[in-house]
Design a protein around this nucleic acid. Structure first.
Lengths: 216, 216
DNA sequence: CAATTTTTGTATCGAACGATACAGATGTAG
DNA sequence: CTACATCTGTATCGTTCGATACAAAAATTG
């Protein structure tokens, strides 16, 4: 057995407590004194266990991923791409607008450090977000090969679309959007943009555009 | 005329320079020394002109709004709701993935402080984002009254959807997404989710869902 | 038991933070 | 010109930051 005085704190417990601090205050806004107080440990214990502030944050990110793995498993087990999309967005909405106080609104991967004096933090967050995007893309690639997506569909674009939508919903949740409002957004996200009843749906209607038309 | 020694810096110029620092580093990550160096002025000049760091930031936000007013004017002048949506998203994409070095990727209102030790900053940013959402909603409300939107369309939800989409795209841009990738996302955002060729489009297909079915 | 190893609590480190005091410089007003 | 008002540059303020030194405490090992 391991020699020496044993720890008197549970790693996962203190990581969960640190998580809410990073979530609410962001990486730079979360001070060591605030973190140690929330975690219920003293600085030397923190540094011995996690190295430094960035090490603690990365451990929190790993813990966050673990906590959300169940959702992604359920999403990826859905029978068809459209259900994948719906389960993913509904899961994000339920999670981001959670009002039962289990965690702050929004998503840690979006809230805690899009910009930072240390660029490693935004990069680490981007990697974690990209992992979910990759999982969705690979799922859609398999769907396309199986004929569950149209020939002209782009798995990569669909995955980026879902992740962008999810991240945008998280921002709205952090600004106070309710679960109902997010679910309403999902219905739009999963349906066609509502054409005017006066507009011709097909073929593509002419639209004003900021981009130059390709030379016809 | 105003008495006393005149300033030897242009307010808009130093605000533009401060903007890029806040944009890249976030509110808390932008240090006063970095700001004053980028702005080319000394701390006393900064504090005399803007009060403190938060005052400078709010002045930067006002300047940011002014810089993007032209885009919103173009968007709101579009002839129909769908064009509004397209112009808005294309404008955001062009702006967020700007590779000509005029500014950092993404959107200042998303990048610079979703979370912070001082909650006033995320609130201020949320208000500025909400202003754009409100402009879109009011436009769509007028469209609905004029019959340019279906009876069952919700202007508030459509506006929230667009803003969420835009914010999500900004996050992807800040993580390195290209303009092409964002434009591809827009095509998805403005079209129906591609149904499987095997699926029945209408009436609503049964989908797996995280939410309990309403008691039939 | 003594020896060893690791963690804990206290107290504090140097650096960087946001913010100013102050004196000299540079303009207007009369 | 003198008097006044404002801005500029230097130098520095007190606080808080992230991170540690150190000794006592608490476990295993033999």
């Amino acid at each position: 057995m391991r020699t020496g005085r044993p720890r008197n704190f549970c790693t996962d417990t203190v990581l969960d407590r640190a998580m809410t601090v990073f979530w609410r205050k962001g990486y730079e806004g979360a001070s060591l004194s605030e973190l140690t107080e929330a975690m219920g440990i003293n600085p030397p214990s923190l540094y011995a266990a996690f190295g430094n502030k960035e090490g603690l944050f990365r451990a929190v990110l790993a813990r966050y991923d673990a906590r959300r793995q169940a959702l992604m498993d359920r999403v990826l087990a859905a029978p068809d791409p459209r259900s994948v999309a719906r389960l993913f967005l509904e899961g994000v909405a339920e999670f981001a607008a959670d009002t039962e106080g289990r965690h702050p609104p929004g998503c840690l991967l979006v809230q805690s450090g899009l910009s930072c004096s240390d660029a490693d933090i935004p990069e680490a967050l981007a990697e974690h977000r990209a992992e979910k995007e990759r999982a969705l893309r690979e799922r859609f690639e398999r769907d396309k090969e199986a004929g569950n997506l149209p020939e002209d569909a782009s798995p990569a674009t669909l995955a980026r679309y879902l992740v962008a939508m999810a991240n945008g919903m998280c921002i709205q949740a952090s600004a106070g959007a309710t679960g109902k409002q997010l679910r309403d957004i999902i219905e739009v996200a999963l349906a066609a943009w509502p054409d005017s009843v006066k507009m011709v749906v097909s073929p593509a209607p002419r639209e004003a555009s900021l981009r130059p038309e390709p030379a016809a």
